[in-house]
Simulated scan of single mutants.
Amino acid sequence: MGTSMFAQVIMYPPPPLTSYITVMALVVVVLEAIAGILESRGKHLRLSKFSNVGTKKSALKLSGKMGMLTAYTPSFLLSLASFGVFPNEGLRFLLLKSAFTFHFFKRICEVLFVHKYSGPMFVDVAIMLSLSYFIQTTLMIYAQHLTQGLQEPQVDLKYIGIVIFVVGLCGNFYHHYLLSKLRGDGKKEYKIPKGGLFNLVICPHYLFEILGFVGVSCIAQTMYTFFFTLGSAIILMGRSYGTRKWYLSKFEDFPKDVKAVIPFVF
């Protein structure tokens, strides 16, 4: 089976007059691939342990909690609003809107009640993240809206997508919880994470985040969402690789057999 034929089996056909969606999908993959390569080479987004990399001390800052709320809240509100903007467009669309809403609701709850931050977040980083999440969520929701009236993919993946999404959501939350238990209140030190899949990979929370995006792609079955998942996987793998190098440089007793994000492989 050729690549194009396989794509037709698992994805909606491209809607008419939507070449800009195709272009944006390609742009997403290229930009996120570049970002992933830069992360793996030490050019990190200024978050968490990398927050002071290449930053001027005079840069405007928010608290870590406020910065992440700024990043996630607009997309959460957008996801909620999509129920009213695009009502009664079928079960698949309802599942997709629900997945986005739960995803960002979980993120906000983790910011408020789980995460413990080692430092502030820079305003430009918070705004960049907020715009990125908002634009990507908007395009994925709109791409799904454009499938109305089109022929369904030959293979229906939405139900398996729900399972994969829930596994990703739960696994991501559990490993975020384990990370939060490493640091006492008011403490800023880093330790080698233990428990869960941390004994196999240093970033299992990214592994489950990728799984969550795979689940969203299976629910949506649109080209844009599959491309977004590919780009997200590349950047998270790059960041995981950079994180593993950071731990190796900071801890002499870091176990060398612990991989970056894929157990036993990478």
Rank of each mutant, 00 (worst) to 15 (best):
Y142D: 03
L157P: 05
T3W: 15
Q154S: 09
V261P: 12
I235W: 12
V23N: 06
F213M: 11
T222S: 07
S79A: 13
S217L: 00
V23L: 14
V265N: 03
V261S: 12
K256P: 00
L150Y: 10
L131S: 08
R183Y: 02
K188N: 02
K97F: 00
Q144C: 04
D185N: 02
L179W: 09
K65V: 00
F122C: 02
G171M: 08
Q151S: 11
H176P: 04
G84E: 00
F254D: 13
V167M: 14
K250R: 12
Y20H: 08
V214T: 12
S98Q: 05
R183M: 02
F83E: 01
F198R: 03
K245E: 11
P15E: 12
I234P: 00
S118A: 05
M68N: 14
F105Q: 01
G90E: 10
L129E: 10
S48R: 05
M140V: 07
T55H: 03
L150I: 06
V29I: 14
L230T: 12
A220N: 01
P87N: 10
V201C: 05
M1D: 08
L182H: 04
Y190D: 01
Y241L: 14
L17N: 15
E252V: 04
G54V: 03
E152F: 09
S40V: 01
F100V: 05
C218E: 12
Y206D: 06
G212A: 14
G195A: 05
F50V: 02
R41I: 04
K43W: 15
S75L: 07
F198L: 09
P153H: 08
D257A: 12
L80Y: 08
T22A: 07
Q8R: 13
L47G: 00
A233F: 10
I37D: 00
F228W: 06
P87Y: 11
S98K: 05
S180D: 09
G42T: 02
S79E: 07
